[in-house]
Design a protein around this nucleic acid. Structure first.
Lengths: 102, 102
DNA sequence: CAGTATCCACAGGGATACTG
DNA sequence: CAGTATCCCTGTGGATACTG
């Protein structure tokens, strides 16, 4: 198996991506930050930039005041839906038991 | 989605786990290290200890000379097979395209 | 063989302040 | 609002040497 971690890495990468995928449509920066709380602005920005570079996420800036920036997954990003959903289901089912292991 | 990364974290976590899962039976430390090369002893040990604490992996020491230590996934660890396989498939299919984005 | 013990480098990540 | 810019700390991870 190749290093999946090299493709989607970082503490918040999976939560962000999964949130973007399940949200369906475009989602604003602030809305995304609330959804993936307690992530910091810096980290959210960093991850989103990385996703953009990899073609997983698209960024749209609306020239309004105040500025509105929206993010949405690309077709490529959507192909992660099944794998991430499987992971999410697993985490939901076993997180209680695994949490004690620190 | 909960923090999957908190449950299975680290550069080598997924490669190690996936290797243990697909190998089916017990696998020795050195064998595992070769399979997940170029991981260092230290990192392999660290991850294996973490998996043990979480009940994902079992460790068996055979009192021989030289010592033989074998690892195998538990039933709980095996439940990760489908999610990780999905991830592996995805990585195989898209790693070429995503590699350029660094 | 299968570790443990050190030392060390660096990226990830948090907190805070500032800006177009 | 959606960032950028700093400062700083911690964990991750590599290299190397040593041991039951």
């Amino acid at each position: 198996m190749l290093r999946f971690v090299d493709l989607v890495s970082g503490k918040w990468a999976i939560p962000i991506l999964y949130r973007l995928i399940v949200s369906g449509g475009p989602i604003r920066f602030s809305e995304l930050q609330r959804a993936v709380a307690p992530i910091t602005q810096k980290e959210l920005t960093r991850h989103l930039r990385a996703f953009e570079r990899k073609g997983l996420v698209e960024r749209t800036v609306h020239a309004e005041v105040p500025v509105r920036v929206e993010y949405r997954v690309t077709g490529l990003g959507l192909t992660l839906e099944q794998p991430l959903a499987a992971l999410a289901d697993w985490a939901d089912a076993h997180s209680a038991r695994l949490g004690g292991g620190h």
